[in-house]
Nucleic acid binder design. Structure first.
Length: 228
DNA sequence: GCGACAG
DNA sequence: ATCTTGTCGC
């Protein structure tokens, strides 16, 4: 997995310093593809705790049809422990390697986790966005340390995701009557567009097609690399 | 100090 | 994340 920044942190305090620097480079604009347009790329990672192996997968979909355009995977050694708030340092190296293997333009990158909805305002999706210069969003399955009021039961309903009084993202209902997902800006997108993208990617299930696809692929890659 | 805590 | 059977429902 070659493309790691020279100053990639070796411990937790160094990691937090990296986050504080990357946070300042996050951009919130609409320079990425419009919802339903261009490409959307799902990224996910699977682990084998026994052997400290990590497998990352990236799946590029057509933004309009949601059909698969290209896939890539990367396998390597786990380089950082799981620490709440420092997830990016565990997942980013393998994901960057997988992204490097792509031929197609990734378009919008959709992460399994958070962007600026983060204790230091620099989660996985923001790390990936700033390091690659690409537009990214984060779609998480759990509210992490944040608070929210239940959105309306209809698909498309949203409610603020709050860190104290600050709105850091949205709790978004992607399926009627089903637990919402938690959306936040990663890089080069607005929160409203992050929500719109998420709704385009969830025509049928709670989770975006991008992450469903990437999840299945990284598990398969891990099985192939390990065994069973 | 204790508990909570994306994946 | 990962360990795991059957089961209710479209």
């Amino acid at each position: 997995m070659p493309p790691l920044p020279a100053d990639w942190p070796a411990d937790e305090s160094a990691a937090r310093a990296v986050q504080d620097a990357l946070r300042e480079r996050v951009v919130r604009d609409e320079s990425g593809p419009r919802p339903g347009t261009g490409h959307v790329t799902g990224v996910d990672v699977a682990y084998d705790d026994e052997r400290d192996v990590v497998a990352a997968a990236v799946v590029v979909l057509d933004g309009a049809s949601l059909e698969v355009v290209e896939e890539a995977t990367a396998v390597g050694q786990v380089a950082f422990p799981y620490v709440p708030g420092l997830l990016a340092f565990r997942e980013v190296p393998a994901v960057l390697a997988a992204l490097d293997a792509l031929t197609a333009d990734p378009g919008l990158v959709v992460c399994d986790g958070y962007g600026v909805a983060h204790p230091r305002r620099c989660g996985l999706a923001s790390h990936l966005g700033v390091l690659t210069g690409r537009p990214t969003i984060g779609v998480a399955k759990n509210p992490f340390t944040f608070a929210y009021e239940a959105p309306g039961a209809a698909r498309g309903s949203a409610a603020p995701l709050l860190d104290g009084a600050e709105e850091v993202g949205s709790a978004l209902r992607t399926r009627e009557g089903v637990k919402p997902v938690f959306v936040s800006v990663g890089h080069r997108v607005t929160l409203a567009d992050a929500r719109a993208h998420t709704l385009h990617l969830t025509p049928r299930y709670r989770l975006p097609e991008t992450t469903r696809r990437a999840d299945a692929l990284c598990r398969a890659a891990l099985r192939e690399a390990t065994g069973a």
